[in-house]
Amino acid sequence: MEFQLTESQRALQDAARKYAREVVRPKAAHYDETSEFPRDLLSTAFELGLLNMAIPSEYGGGGLSHLEQVIVCEELAWGCAGVATSIIANDLANLPIILHGTEDQKKRLLSEFGQKLKFSSFCLTEPSAGSDVAAMSTTARREGDEYVLNGTKCFITNGGYADQFTVFATLDKGKKHKGITCFVVEGRPAGVTTGKHENKMGQRASNTVTVNFDEVRVPVANRIGEEGEGFKVAMATLDNSRPLTASLSVGIARAALEYSLEYSAQRQTFGKPIREHQGVQFMLADMGMNTHAARLLTWESAWVLDEGQRNTLQSSYAKCFAADMAMKVATDAVQVYGGYGYMKDYPVEKLMRDAKLIQVYEGTSQVQRLVIAKELFR
């Protein structure tokens, strides 16, 4: 067991940190305020090889290990969690193809992402089917060599700009999770429409929309896995993506800690910097301790995948702990700043808003605890 990064991993970390510091952070407040899609930042990320990290190199992607992906993602989230979410959305959407696609599907559906700036969206959540995936209403029916999709997906990241969608639909609602199947919709064929960009509390730099599928035709060749295997595909995808989501939390918390350390050294009360007051020191100590603990959980959950093992328990530990930790650390950062922390002129209120979303998406903190309990019962 080693905790030292390799030389190549440190170089990757440095490159991602430089991008976050020099490219993302100077514009983070602007995109948070305007809620515009940060295409220029994503274009730069693509040029630097920070987009499509999970796609194997033989298909034109970064081919990074899971540990390397979370190292990069922490740096991106340290710069801006909304921008980081926009960057890793492609990895989430393409994971079903990477994990369960045929060789032909991987060549057809992944290779173009390495050639040009292109966005893909993961379409699982519905207005009435979030945590309860088996209750989904989006349907698929077989007609010859095609499937026809009908339904609505909500809270879809990059959905307003995507020209490829990984969609989960049911062939038979009566079968619940056993009826779900995964499909890839290429381009924006007739019947694919998107709603307005959601006016979110945090992570406002990421595009979030509703995507509607009305009699959308998909060739059988774009079915990922067999009929009825969609639930298994989705769960395997989330096992793989949870370390990335956890690393977003670590990046937010690290930023909150660093800002708090800096401010507490400058702000004075009762004749001395506030960091010399024991009450503030306890807060800073907890922030540092829990950020580090979350990072180690996250790295372990990625390492388990790199070892070729199932990581459901470890990734749920990491995602749940890190999400709750980031919310607490960001809230404490606002407290360290006092009244100024509540103002948009200072950076920590944004971190608090950004952190909240991670307790909700890709499995709420409550659902993670259900998964953890189920794994412990095994």
Results as ranks from 00 to 15, higher is better:
residue 20 A to E: 04
residue 42 L to D: 02
residue 224 I to G: 02
residue 254 R to M: 11
residue 57 S to H: 06
residue 82 G to F: 00
residue 242 R to L: 11
residue 230 G to D: 10
residue 121 S to Q: 07
residue 232 K to P: 01
residue 184 V to T: 03
residue 32 D to Q: 09
residue 272 K to Y: 06
residue 51 L to E: 08
residue 357 L to H: 09
residue 372 I to K: 06
residue 86 S to T: 00
residue 257 L to N: 06
residue 314 Q to I: 02
residue 220 V to W: 00
residue 198 E to A: 15
residue 180 I to R: 06
residue 102 T to L: 05
residue 49 G to M: 05
residue 293 A to F: 12
residue 87 I to V: 14
residue 262 E to S: 13
residue 274 I to G: 02
residue 181 T to L: 09
residue 223 R to V: 08
residue 227 E to D: 01
residue 61 G to V: 02
residue 152 T to R: 14
residue 239 D to M: 12
residue 123 C to E: 10
residue 219 P to G: 09
residue 166 T to I: 00
residue 176 K to S: 15
residue 271 G to Q: 04
residue 40 D to W: 01
residue 82 G to E: 03
residue 224 I to L: 06
residue 129 A to I: 05
residue 85 T to M: 15
residue 161 Y to E: 08
residue 214 D to R: 07
residue 204 R to C: 00
residue 37 F to Q: 05
residue 357 L to Y: 06
residue 259 Y to L: 08
residue 281 Q to G: 09
residue 195 G to V: 12
residue 66 H to I: 00
residue 372 I to G: 08
residue 222 N to A: 02
residue 100 H to R: 12
residue 261 L to G: 06
residue 336 V to C: 13
residue 256 A to F: 04
residue 330 A to G: 09
residue 80 C to F: 02
residue 29 A to W: 00
residue 339 G to C: 05
residue 369 R to A: 13
residue 108 R to A: 13
residue 28 A to P: 04
residue 272 K to C: 09
residue 180 I to K: 08
residue 263 Y to N: 06
residue 208 T to N: 15
residue 364 T to S: 15
residue 311 N to C: 14
residue 73 C to Y: 05
residue 28 A to W: 05
residue 353 R to K: 12
residue 6 T to K: 14
residue 222 N to G: 04
residue 98 I to P: 07
residue 45 A to Y: 04
residue 156 I to V: 15
residue 282 F to Y: 03
residue 168 F to I: 06
residue 99 L to C: 08
residue 172 D to A: 02
residue 345 D to R: 10
residue 143 E to H: 10
residue 219 P to N: 12
residue 135 A to K: 14
residue 73 C to Q: 11
residue 200 K to W: 01
residue 211 V to E: 08
residue 72 V to L: 13
residue 297 L to D: 03
residue 151 G to W: 05
residue 292 H to K: 11
residue 100 H to K: 14
residue 27 K to P: 02
residue 331 T to M: 13
residue 176 K to L: 11
residue 93 A to L: 03
residue 160 G to H: 07
residue 310 R to L: 15
residue 272 K to V: 00
residue 65 S to E: 13
residue 14 D to T: 08
residue 162 A to D: 04
residue 376 L to G: 10
residue 137 S to L: 12
residue 303 W to D: 15
residue 91 D to E: 11
residue 232 K to A: 03
residue 324 D to K: 07
residue 281 Q to E: 14
residue 231 F to V: 01
residue 144 G to L: 04
residue 3 F to M: 12
residue 308 G to P: 06
residue 339 G to N: 04
residue 100 H to E: 06
residue 26 P to H: 09
residue 296 L to M: 12
residue 245 T to L: 09
residue 189 P to G: 11
residue 263 Y to H: 14
residue 48 L to P: 01
residue 131 S to E: 15
residue 154 C to Y: 04
residue 196 K to Q: 11
residue 285 A to T: 05
residue 220 V to K: 11
residue 20 A to K: 01
residue 151 G to S: 07
residue 272 K to Q: 13
residue 341 G to M: 01
residue 353 R to N: 14
residue 367 V to A: 09
residue 165 F to N: 02
residue 105 Q to M: 03
residue 260 S to A: 13
residue 232 K to N: 02
residue 208 T to I: 07
residue 291 T to R: 13
residue 248 L to N: 10
residue 10 R to V: 00
residue 145 D to V: 01
residue 147 Y to W: 12
residue 155 F to C: 10
residue 16 A to P: 01
